[in-house]
Protein backbone atom coordinates (compact mmCIF):
# COMPACT_ATOMS: atom_id res chain seq x y z
CA UNK A 1 0.00 0.00 0.00
CA UNK A 2 2.86 2.37 0.73
CA UNK A 3 4.04 1.77 -2.81
CA UNK A 4 0.62 2.72 -4.08
CA UNK A 5 0.70 5.96 -2.12
CA UNK A 6 4.14 6.85 -3.44
CA UNK A 7 3.08 6.04 -6.97
CA UNK A 8 -0.08 8.06 -6.58
CA UNK A 9 1.96 11.01 -5.27
CA UNK A 10 4.51 10.81 -8.06
CA UNK A 11 1.77 10.65 -10.67
CA UNK A 12 0.78 14.16 -9.69
CA UNK A 13 4.02 15.59 -11.06
CA UNK A 14 3.45 14.82 -14.75
CA UNK A 15 -0.15 15.85 -14.27
CA UNK A 16 0.94 19.22 -12.89
CA UNK A 17 3.43 19.69 -15.74
CA UNK A 18 0.68 18.82 -18.20
CA UNK A 19 -1.68 21.35 -16.64
CA UNK A 20 0.91 24.12 -16.80
CA UNK A 21 1.77 23.24 -20.41
CA UNK A 22 -1.84 23.41 -21.52
CA UNK A 23 -2.50 26.61 -19.54
CA UNK A 24 0.60 28.24 -20.93
CA UNK A 25 -0.34 27.27 -24.46
CA UNK A 26 -3.89 28.56 -24.07
CA UNK A 27 -2.97 31.94 -22.64
CA UNK A 28 -0.29 32.39 -25.29
CA UNK A 29 -2.72 31.50 -28.05
CA UNK A 30 -4.96 34.40 -27.06
CA UNK A 31 -4.24 37.32 -29.36
CA UNK A 32 -2.31 40.26 -27.99
CA UNK A 33 0.17 40.33 -25.16
CA UNK A 34 1.09 42.24 -22.05
CA UNK A 35 2.81 44.97 -24.04
CA UNK A 36 -0.25 45.66 -26.19
CA UNK A 37 -2.44 45.70 -23.13
CA UNK A 38 -0.08 48.19 -21.53
CA UNK A 39 0.14 50.51 -24.47
CA UNK A 40 -3.61 50.35 -25.17
CA UNK A 41 -2.82 51.57 -28.64
CA UNK A 42 -1.28 54.70 -27.28
CA UNK A 43 0.29 56.71 -30.11
CA UNK A 44 2.75 58.19 -27.68
CA UNK A 45 4.18 54.71 -27.60
CA UNK A 46 6.14 54.26 -30.79
CA UNK A 47 6.67 50.91 -32.47
CA UNK A 48 10.29 50.97 -31.25
CA UNK A 49 9.18 51.54 -27.67
CA UNK A 50 6.84 48.58 -27.90
CA UNK A 51 9.58 46.42 -29.38
CA UNK A 52 11.82 47.47 -26.50
CA UNK A 53 9.24 46.35 -23.96
CA UNK A 54 8.79 43.06 -25.77
CA UNK A 55 12.53 42.46 -25.45
CA UNK A 56 12.68 43.57 -21.83
CA UNK A 57 10.05 41.00 -20.92
CA UNK A 58 11.70 38.33 -23.09
CA UNK A 59 8.55 37.99 -25.19
CA UNK A 60 10.57 37.90 -28.41
CA UNK A 61 12.06 34.53 -27.59
CA UNK A 62 10.41 31.31 -28.83
CA UNK A 63 7.41 30.39 -26.71
CA UNK A 64 8.83 27.01 -25.65
CA UNK A 65 11.96 28.74 -24.40
CA UNK A 66 9.83 31.17 -22.42
CA UNK A 67 7.87 28.27 -21.01
CA UNK A 68 11.02 26.42 -20.01
CA UNK A 69 12.54 29.41 -18.28
CA UNK A 70 9.24 30.03 -16.52
CA UNK A 71 8.99 26.37 -15.46
CA UNK A 72 12.59 26.39 -14.22
CA UNK A 73 11.85 29.43 -12.05
CA UNK A 74 8.68 27.84 -10.70
CA UNK A 75 10.58 24.65 -9.90
CA UNK A 76 12.71 26.85 -7.65
CA UNK A 77 9.49 28.20 -6.12
CA UNK A 78 9.75 31.57 -7.83
CA UNK A 79 6.52 32.57 -9.56
CA UNK A 80 8.12 35.68 -11.01
CA UNK A 81 6.85 39.21 -11.19
CA UNK A 82 3.73 40.67 -12.73
CA UNK A 83 4.38 42.22 -16.13
CA UNK A 84 1.84 44.91 -15.38
CA UNK A 85 3.08 46.46 -12.16
CA UNK A 86 6.31 44.60 -11.50
CA UNK A 87 5.17 43.22 -8.16
CA UNK A 88 5.94 39.61 -7.19
CA UNK A 89 3.14 37.30 -8.27
CA UNK A 90 3.16 35.57 -4.91
CA UNK A 91 2.64 38.87 -3.12
CA UNK A 92 -0.34 39.75 -5.30
CA UNK A 93 -1.92 36.36 -4.68
CA UNK A 94 -1.16 36.59 -0.96
CA UNK A 95 -3.09 39.84 -0.83
CA UNK A 96 -6.14 38.63 -2.74
CA UNK A 97 -6.40 35.17 -1.20
CA UNK A 98 -7.42 36.11 2.38
CA UNK A 99 -10.31 38.21 1.08
CA UNK A 100 -11.71 35.39 -1.03
CA UNK A 101 -10.91 32.70 1.51
CA UNK A 102 -12.47 34.67 4.36
CA UNK A 103 -15.75 35.42 2.61
CA UNK A 104 -15.99 31.91 1.16
CA UNK A 105 -15.21 30.16 4.45
CA UNK A 106 -17.79 32.20 6.34
CA UNK A 107 -20.33 31.60 3.66
CA UNK A 108 -19.55 27.86 3.62
CA UNK A 109 -20.20 27.70 7.35
CA UNK A 110 -23.55 29.39 6.86
CA UNK A 111 -24.38 27.18 3.88
CA UNK A 112 -24.09 24.02 5.95
CA UNK A 113 -25.21 25.45 9.27
CA UNK A 114 -28.42 26.73 7.68
CA UNK A 115 -28.86 24.30 4.81
CA UNK A 116 -28.78 21.06 6.84
CA UNK A 117 -31.45 22.05 9.43
CA UNK A 118 -33.66 23.46 6.67
CA UNK A 119 -33.38 20.24 4.69
CA UNK A 120 -34.01 18.05 7.73
CA UNK A 121 -36.96 20.13 8.75
CA UNK A 122 -38.66 19.90 5.40
CA UNK A 123 -37.90 16.17 5.04
CA UNK A 124 -39.43 15.41 8.42
CA UNK A 125 -42.48 17.54 7.70
CA UNK A 126 -43.03 16.02 4.31
CA UNK A 127 -46.21 17.29 2.68
CA UNK A 128 -46.71 20.07 5.18
CA UNK A 129 -46.86 23.82 4.61
CA UNK A 130 -43.34 24.02 6.03
CA UNK A 131 -42.00 21.76 3.33
CA UNK A 132 -43.77 23.67 0.60
CA UNK A 133 -42.47 26.94 1.99
CA UNK A 134 -38.87 25.73 2.17
CA UNK A 135 -39.10 24.24 -1.31
CA UNK A 136 -40.41 27.48 -2.76
CA UNK A 137 -37.78 29.54 -1.00
CA UNK A 138 -34.90 27.30 -2.00
CA UNK A 139 -36.10 27.20 -5.59
CA UNK A 140 -36.34 30.98 -5.61
CA UNK A 141 -32.87 31.32 -4.09
CA UNK A 142 -31.50 29.09 -6.84
CA UNK A 143 -33.39 30.84 -9.60
CA UNK A 144 -32.66 34.51 -8.92
CA UNK A 145 -29.25 35.77 -10.01
CA UNK A 146 -27.03 36.53 -7.04
CA UNK A 147 -26.00 39.92 -8.41
CA UNK A 148 -29.63 40.99 -8.54
CA UNK A 149 -30.19 40.00 -4.93
CA UNK A 150 -26.96 41.78 -4.05
CA UNK A 151 -28.08 44.97 -5.76
CA UNK A 152 -31.51 44.83 -4.10
CA UNK A 153 -29.94 44.37 -0.68
CA UNK A 154 -27.36 47.07 -1.27
CA UNK A 155 -30.01 49.48 -2.40
CA UNK A 156 -32.49 48.56 0.35
CA UNK A 157 -30.35 48.00 3.43
CA UNK A 158 -27.33 50.03 2.39
CA UNK A 159 -28.70 53.04 0.56
CA UNK A 160 -32.35 53.23 1.60
CA UNK A 161 -32.04 52.52 5.32
CA UNK A 162 -28.27 53.12 5.62
CA UNK A 163 -28.12 50.13 7.96
CA UNK A 164 -25.12 48.44 6.42
CA UNK A 165 -22.11 49.61 4.43
CA UNK A 166 -22.37 49.06 0.71
CA UNK A 167 -18.95 47.93 -0.43
CA UNK A 168 -15.50 46.84 0.62
CA UNK A 169 -14.40 45.30 3.91
CA UNK A 170 -13.57 48.41 5.90
CA UNK A 171 -14.89 51.93 6.35
CA UNK A 172 -12.92 54.83 5.06
CA UNK A 173 -11.90 55.83 8.59
CA UNK A 174 -11.09 52.24 9.60
CA UNK A 175 -7.54 53.03 10.66
CA UNK A 176 -8.80 55.69 13.08
CA UNK A 177 -11.13 53.32 14.93
CA UNK A 178 -10.41 51.51 18.20
CA UNK A 179 -9.62 47.77 17.91
CA UNK A 180 -13.11 46.80 19.00
CA UNK A 181 -14.72 49.20 16.55
CA UNK A 182 -12.53 47.78 13.81
CA UNK A 183 -13.80 44.26 14.37
CA UNK A 184 -17.36 45.52 14.43
CA UNK A 185 -16.70 47.57 11.31
CA UNK A 186 -15.38 44.60 9.35
CA UNK A 187 -18.22 42.39 10.59
CA UNK A 188 -20.79 44.91 9.37
CA UNK A 189 -19.08 45.00 6.00
CA UNK A 190 -19.15 41.22 5.75
CA UNK A 191 -22.88 40.80 6.32
CA UNK A 192 -24.10 41.49 2.79
CA UNK A 193 -21.36 39.73 0.77
CA UNK A 194 -21.44 36.63 2.97
CA UNK A 195 -25.22 36.48 2.93
CA UNK A 196 -25.40 36.85 -0.83
CA UNK A 197 -22.68 34.34 -1.55
CA UNK A 198 -24.25 31.83 0.86
CA UNK A 199 -27.73 32.11 -0.59
CA UNK A 200 -27.58 29.69 -3.51
CA UNK A 201 -25.33 27.24 -1.65
CA UNK A 202 -27.73 27.07 1.27
CA UNK A 203 -30.55 26.28 -1.11
CA UNK A 204 -28.53 23.50 -2.73
CA UNK A 205 -27.60 21.92 0.58
CA UNK A 206 -31.15 22.20 1.91
CA UNK A 207 -32.57 20.46 -1.15
CA UNK A 208 -29.84 17.86 -1.08
CA UNK A 209 -30.41 17.17 2.60
CA UNK A 210 -34.15 16.94 2.14
CA UNK A 211 -33.81 14.45 -0.70
CA UNK A 212 -31.22 12.37 1.11
CA UNK A 213 -33.09 12.19 4.40
CA UNK A 214 -36.40 11.69 2.65
CA UNK A 215 -34.98 8.69 0.85
CA UNK A 216 -33.39 7.28 3.99
CA UNK A 217 -36.65 7.53 5.89
CA UNK A 218 -38.23 5.06 3.46
CA UNK A 219 -35.54 2.46 4.16
CA UNK A 220 -36.29 -0.85 5.83
CA UNK A 221 -34.17 -0.26 8.90
CA UNK A 222 -36.01 2.96 9.62
CA UNK A 223 -39.29 1.13 9.43
CA UNK A 224 -37.78 -1.55 11.67
CA UNK A 225 -36.70 1.06 14.17
CA UNK A 226 -40.17 2.53 14.21
CA UNK A 227 -41.60 -0.95 14.59
CA UNK A 228 -39.39 -1.49 17.61
CA UNK A 229 -41.21 1.45 19.12
CA UNK A 230 -38.39 3.97 19.13
CA UNK A 231 -39.43 7.56 19.45
CA UNK A 232 -39.73 9.49 16.19
CA UNK A 233 -36.92 11.73 17.43
CA UNK A 234 -34.59 8.79 17.93
CA UNK A 235 -35.54 7.30 14.58
CA UNK A 236 -34.83 10.45 12.64
CA UNK A 237 -31.87 11.91 14.46
CA UNK A 238 -30.05 8.82 15.72
CA UNK A 239 -30.65 6.35 12.91
CA UNK A 240 -31.65 8.05 9.69
CA UNK A 241 -29.80 11.36 9.86
CA UNK A 242 -26.34 9.88 10.25
CA UNK A 243 -26.72 7.83 7.13
CA UNK A 244 -28.40 10.63 5.24
CA UNK A 245 -25.55 12.99 6.10
CA UNK A 246 -22.91 10.97 4.23
CA UNK A 247 -23.66 12.37 0.75
CA UNK A 248 -23.90 15.87 2.23
CA UNK A 249 -20.44 15.46 3.69
CA UNK A 250 -19.19 14.44 0.27
CA UNK A 251 -20.73 17.67 -0.97
CA UNK A 252 -18.80 19.56 1.71
CA UNK A 253 -15.59 17.92 0.55
CA UNK A 254 -16.30 18.89 -3.03
CA UNK A 255 -16.87 22.52 -2.12
CA UNK A 256 -13.52 22.88 -0.34
CA UNK A 257 -11.40 23.65 -3.45
CA UNK A 258 -14.02 26.27 -4.31
CA UNK A 259 -12.91 28.23 -1.26
CA UNK A 260 -10.04 29.62 -3.29
CA UNK A 261 -12.11 30.68 -6.26
CA UNK A 262 -13.75 34.05 -6.41
CA UNK A 263 -16.59 35.28 -8.56
CA UNK A 264 -15.68 38.25 -10.72
CA UNK A 265 -19.20 39.64 -10.76
CA UNK A 266 -19.62 39.37 -7.04
CA UNK A 267 -16.24 40.87 -6.21
CA UNK A 268 -16.83 43.69 -8.66
CA UNK A 269 -20.22 44.49 -7.18
CA UNK A 270 -18.99 44.61 -3.59
CA UNK A 271 -15.60 46.07 -4.57
CA UNK A 272 -13.76 43.20 -2.91
CA UNK A 273 -10.22 42.74 -4.20
CA UNK A 274 -10.28 38.92 -4.26
CA UNK A 275 -9.01 36.10 -6.44
CA UNK A 276 -11.73 36.40 -9.06
CA UNK A 277 -10.86 39.94 -10.00
CA UNK A 278 -7.15 39.30 -9.70
CA UNK A 279 -7.37 36.52 -12.25
CA UNK A 280 -9.84 38.32 -14.51
CA UNK A 281 -7.65 41.41 -14.68
CA UNK A 282 -4.59 39.27 -15.25
CA UNK A 283 -6.20 37.61 -18.26
CA UNK A 284 -7.40 40.92 -19.67
CA UNK A 285 -3.97 42.49 -19.42
CA UNK A 286 -2.33 39.25 -20.59
CA UNK A 287 -0.18 39.30 -17.49
CA UNK A 288 1.31 35.85 -18.20
CA UNK A 289 3.25 35.36 -14.96
CA UNK A 290 0.23 36.23 -12.83
CA UNK A 291 -2.19 34.11 -14.87
CA UNK A 292 0.18 31.17 -14.63
CA UNK A 293 0.82 31.77 -10.94
CA UNK A 294 -2.87 31.62 -10.09
CA UNK A 295 -3.37 28.55 -12.28
CA UNK A 296 -0.40 26.69 -10.84
CA UNK A 297 -1.49 27.34 -7.28
CA UNK A 298 -5.03 26.28 -8.17
CA UNK A 299 -3.74 23.12 -9.82
CA UNK A 300 -1.56 22.24 -6.86
CA UNK A 301 -4.39 22.76 -4.39
CA UNK A 302 -6.80 20.68 -6.47
CA UNK A 303 -4.32 17.87 -7.00
CA UNK A 304 -3.41 17.81 -3.33
CA UNK A 305 -7.09 17.85 -2.41
CA UNK A 306 -7.80 14.86 -4.60
CA UNK A 307 -4.79 13.06 -3.21
CA UNK A 308 -5.90 13.67 0.36
CA UNK A 309 -9.42 12.56 -0.52
CA UNK A 310 -8.04 9.32 -1.94
CA UNK A 311 -6.00 8.77 1.20
CA UNK A 312 -9.12 9.46 3.23
CA UNK A 313 -11.12 6.85 1.35
CA UNK A 314 -8.26 4.43 1.77
CA UNK A 315 -8.36 4.97 5.50
CA UNK A 316 -12.13 4.93 5.79
CA UNK A 317 -13.22 2.20 3.47
CA UNK A 318 -11.84 -1.29 3.98
CA UNK A 319 -13.10 -2.38 0.54
CA UNK A 320 -10.81 0.09 -1.22
CA UNK A 321 -7.90 -0.91 0.99
CA UNK A 322 -8.30 -4.54 0.08
CA UNK A 323 -8.64 -3.84 -3.59
CA UNK A 324 -5.33 -2.00 -3.60
CA UNK A 325 -3.53 -4.66 -1.65
CA UNK A 326 -4.65 -7.21 -4.22
CA UNK A 327 -3.73 -4.83 -7.03
CA UNK A 328 -0.16 -4.34 -5.84
CA UNK A 329 0.47 -8.00 -5.01
CA UNK A 330 -0.65 -9.18 -8.41
Amino acid sequence: MRRWIVRRALAMVPLLVGITLVSYAVIRLAPGGPVDAQSEMNPRMTAEARQKLVEIYGLDRPVYEQYLSWAWRVARLDLGRSMVDGRPVLEKIAQALPVTLGVNALSLVIVFAAGIPLGVWSAVRRGSAVERGVTTLTLAALAVPAYWVALLLISGLGVGLRLLPVTGLQSLEHELLSPFERVLDTARHLVLPVFVSALAGTAVVARFMRASLGQTLTRGYVRAARARGLSEHAVVYRHALRNALLPVITLLGLSLPGLLGGSVLFETLFALPGMGRLFYDAVNTRDYPLVMGVLVLGAIVTLLGNFLADLGYLWADPRIRTAHREGTSR
Binding site: L151, I154, G158, T167
Partner: peptide, 20 residues
Protein backbone atom coordinates in the same frame (compact mmCIF):
# COMPACT_ATOMS: atom_id res chain seq x y z
CA UNK B 1 -7.03 62.57 -0.99
CA UNK B 2 -8.49 59.07 -0.94
CA UNK B 3 -8.70 57.15 -4.20
CA UNK B 4 -11.15 54.27 -3.91
CA UNK B 5 -11.25 51.41 -6.38
CA UNK B 6 -14.90 50.73 -7.22
CA UNK B 7 -14.92 48.61 -10.37
CA UNK B 8 -18.67 48.66 -10.89
CA UNK B 9 -20.23 52.04 -11.81
CA UNK B 10 -23.51 50.88 -10.32
CA UNK B 11 -21.85 50.29 -6.97
CA UNK B 12 -19.98 53.56 -7.22
CA UNK B 13 -23.30 55.28 -7.74
CA UNK B 14 -24.74 53.62 -4.63
CA UNK B 15 -21.70 54.83 -2.71
CA UNK B 16 -22.55 58.33 -3.86
CA UNK B 17 -26.04 57.84 -2.47
CA UNK B 18 -24.55 57.07 0.93
CA UNK B 19 -22.04 59.92 0.66
CA UNK B 20 -19.03 57.62 0.86
Amino acid sequence: YVYRVLPDPGTAFLELQTER
